[in-house]
Design a protein around this nucleic acid. Structure first.
Lengths: 154, 154
DNA sequence: ATTAGATCATTAACATGTTAAGCGAAGGGA
DNA sequence: TCCCTTCGCTTAACATGTTAATGATCTAAT
């Protein structure tokens, strides 16, 4: 660490207390705990999110899936190819609307999630234990409130 | 929106209240307000962070800069080339340690930041006004607490 | 002085983020 | 029906995220 003078140290503290960076750091810190599992599963964080969202629905079109997993449409297009090639999802055209693509978890995808779920849950429980369940719930509530207040409700 | 049955709706709510996704969504929501400015400046979010961190220090080596801007070393290497080519930063070798690279803001970089600072500050004030200063401070405090509790203090 | 190990930075390879453009399909009037 | 617009998704192009490997330098111990 380079020795900071008083002025620059204060300024640096100011940057650190900026919403975008704080949220980024928090996310990195949390993901560091999941990364070893994801690496063992040979799957990316985004692919994991897609599978988990699909596991909670029957079949979704790509738009809903993108929103649910917080992934942009172009990224999702690429991810779906990867997951389909790996046999974890099934993709088909919507018969009633030729523009839409319907996606659902394949049996293999369901098995994949079922096998990984206990480890994932265990990690989340560790986080809960370290942070405190109350504190974590409060944080999630405040994040929700932030999103609601900042969302452009066109 | 596809009609969710009661069960899947509850499950979906569960995913949404997951720390990694909540933090991701919050960050996206906040950044949506800064993106138009960054686009007008023809600069990426990461490049902007690098410049701001440099503005708060004299000269930093790449490692400290990477930590300060929350950017991984490989990404920073590429970003430094871009910013140097654009004349916004100055890069030189550390004389006392040939491994280190020292980076500082160039005069042009300082002018660039000075010109953009008012707009940036205005956006942040809008966010403060919408969220509430108290609520925002609380949120930042809780995020800090989260990071401290989850950090591996090897 | 030498050498093994650690450190700092870069490069490589692949996946995703981001914006813009493109394409086929659906919808809504004239 | 035709035309125009909108919608859903994909592709393109470039920047960054992520992990592993490489290169160069420093450090410490011999």
């Amino acid at each position: 660490m380079t020795k900071p003078r008083a002025a620059s140290a204060a300024a640096l503290a100011q940057t650190r207390r900026t919403l975008p960076i704080a949220l980024l750091r928090a996310r990195e810190t949390v993901m560091d705990r999941f990364r070893p599992l994801l690496h063992r599963l040979d799957i990316t964080e985004q692919q994991w999110r897609v599978l988990r969202v699909l596991d909670e629905a029957e079949a979704m079109d790509a738009s809903d899936l993108a929103k649910g997993a917080a992934i942009l449409a172009p990224s999702l297009s690429r991810i779906l190819k990867t997951l389909e090639a790996r046999g974890l999802i099934e993709v088909r055209k919507d018969q009633s609307d030729g523009r839409r693509t319907l996606i659902n978890l394949s049996p293999a995808g369901g098995a994949f999630l079922a096998e990984a779920a206990p480890e994932s849950a265990k990690i989340y429980e560790e986080i809960e234990a370290l942070v405190g369940k109350d504190r974590l719930e409060t944080l999630l509530d405040e994040i929700d409130a932030l999103i609601v207040r900042l969302s452009d409700q066109k």
